[in-house]
Design a protein around this nucleic acid. Sequence first.
DNA 1: GTTGGTTCGTTCAGATTTGAACGAATATAC
DNA 2: GTATATTCGTTCAAATCTGAACGAACCAAC
Lengths: 151, 151
Amino acid sequence: MTDTRWLDDTEMAAWRAFLSTSHLLERRIEEQLKAAAGLTHPQYEILVRLADAPDRQMRMTELARGVVVSKSALTYQITRLERAGLVERATCPSDDRGVLAVLTEAGLRCLERVAPGHLAVVRAYLVDRLTRDELEVMTTAMRRTERALRE
Amino acid sequence: MTDTRWLDDTEMAAWRAFLSTSHLLERRIEEQLKAAAGLTHPQYEILVRLADAPDRQMRMTELARGVVVSKSALTYQITRLERAGLVERATCPSDDRGVLAVLTEAGLRCLERVAPGHLAVVRAYLVDRLTRDELEVMTTAMRRTERALRE
DNA sequence: GTTGGTTCGTTCAGATTTGAACGAATATAC
DNA sequence: GTATATTCGTTCAAATCTGAACGAACCAAC
């Protein structure tokens, strides 16, 4: 690492803005979800992913990958959501090692009740402040990065 | 909240990509810093902010705002960095309540040693994958969002 | 079949985060 | 000046996150 490539002004500005904004937005979202439903952001994301999945169920590992948390964090949160009656665990028919996380009716209703307020925050601070062009540029740029990070 | 404004495809794609990418990148950065220097990302950010500050020192609250962590988290991390000899606490001359976090020489050297590897990750996954235009669009968009979030 | 390597989800210990509560110091209003 | 409200940083308890280690189940090769 003898020749360090520092970031020039444009690069540094972009990186700093991205970093601060993602953290600030995360905090704001966390605050809103906690106040409105006693949910954390990862918990909410779990519900969303399950609601979108076929039969409203997903394998633990796949779900962890989707939400971007460690497997142990997912185990913890699913147990928590199970206790709240929003998710159930089911045995996986095709793989005895596997566990299916299944969204319950109560879980779906919870999501439907919470989503509007959550989306309002995402809009108020991010989506509604970006032009159509900016949204599209961001999508392609983020997806390129995401693909690289997922190897 | 009777009329929910759902996200259309473009909006949802942008939001999802932003969310996943920021989490994935955060994990990757965390992993690199831990392996290279035993630092967490917040710890690294503290060192960076202090290095950029006049006299390499900052008030606790201001620093917490900059790094985007709670005051209690900053107290914890500064104590940790102090133990490692990278930061010191100093009394604030203008305000007896205040505490100044000061970057030590060792802290500066640590930062100089760690920065190249960290920046390489930021480049490899984000900066170098974006065009100049994309970087600029992202900066303006993120700054707009950031300003709103900081009220 | 059985052996060896991989994947699955959980458990565990340890580290970190947050918000609330607190005492101390400052600022504001009168 | 004094009373009130605000700000500062820390402490504390509780929640959450991660990686490592584990037993169980799968898979591939022979």
